[in-house]
Design a protein around this nucleic acid. Sequence first.
DNA 1: GTTCACATGTAACAGGTTACATGATTGG
DNA 2: CCAATCATGTAACCTGTTACATGTGAAC
Lengths: 179, 179
Amino acid sequence: MNVRTLCLGILYFGEATGYEIRKTASEGGFSHFIEANYGSIYPALTKLTQDELVTMREEVFSGKPSRKVYALTDQGREALKAALNEPLRADIFKSEFLFLSLYADLLGTERLTEIMKQRRADLRNELTRLHDAMGQCDHPGSNFAIGYGIALTEAALSYMATHAASASGLQVEPARAAE
Amino acid sequence: MNVRTLCLGILYFGEATGYEIRKTASEGGFSHFIEANYGSIYPALTKLTQDELVTMREEVFSGKPSRKVYALTDQGREALKAALNEPLRADIFKSEFLFLSLYADLLGTERLTEIMKQRRADLRNELTRLHDAMGQCDHPGSNFAIGYGIALTEAALSYMATHAASASGLQVEPARAAE
DNA sequence: GTTCACATGTAACAGGTTACATGATTGG
DNA sequence: CCAATCATGTAACCTGTTACATGTGAAC
């Protein structure tokens, strides 16, 4: 799923500026399964406007920075539909954390425990963020997606809790084997 | 984490060909948190050989396709360590499936149920694959990573099960609201 | 007065993906 | 005989990331 479709998708819920689109994608309820930054969003919006899939209205206030508000056109809605009907791609999951965990014996206890601690903190933050997002919206599709995120984050957290001991265990094992 | 580090990491567990590295990354126990294909692996291995982080030995059998077996050098092991000690990047998770679920009302019941069914099948397959991988290795780091994958996949599956009804629910909701 | 949130955009660059190109061996 | 698996590699392309560049208003 490319940035174009992402923009169309977010604009489906209502008009927005590039700034707001990025915020929704990187901090809002969508952020756990989507990524996008300015460098890709702004050019995409320009292109989308040229293609007449969105309209742009510039709001200028004297003194204030002007904002460009984008809105979906009928063509844009059709383009979104078309994109949604294309063959579904598999999820992408890349985790440096899990990659690192494979090399626990190269890492040293200190860094390893630091990493495990950090990860649990990150997961707790993510969970809070998701609960907030859930509270702020009653759209059924969003609730399904956010609920999914909550379920997985809770599972991760609980796995970390039951395997906290393994953090050191991972590291000690090779030495034990040598005894 | 780039393909270079990935190659070093896989070679840490023993020598391998480019073909085998790709297989480990895309089908083996690592595949749920890593991705890599030939187009990036082969050039990376060539570069790594030039930089003397790995050695290459060509095995030629008359009639058979020759294979190039790569192995980590001491320098390579150090480079891996260095890479592992760099600041840890956040996980990347992108899901077209969850994105689609936001637009259930645009999708039509047929496609929606099809997608939900497919996803549950995919998750079951993934779970089987992970259990197999777990059975085939007793390295503690790998077990931690695979166990993590199993925990999350099970959570996803169980979420799908309890929200299977929502598949149609998602779709029906807007219509209900209009009644 | 300084930091944070709002707000837009460009350009160079890195990185990886897809498709192409080729060929042997093994098992059904 | 045909499909799958083993096996290597290139080149064009796309896509997105990072860093840069700039400026206002509000809150603390």
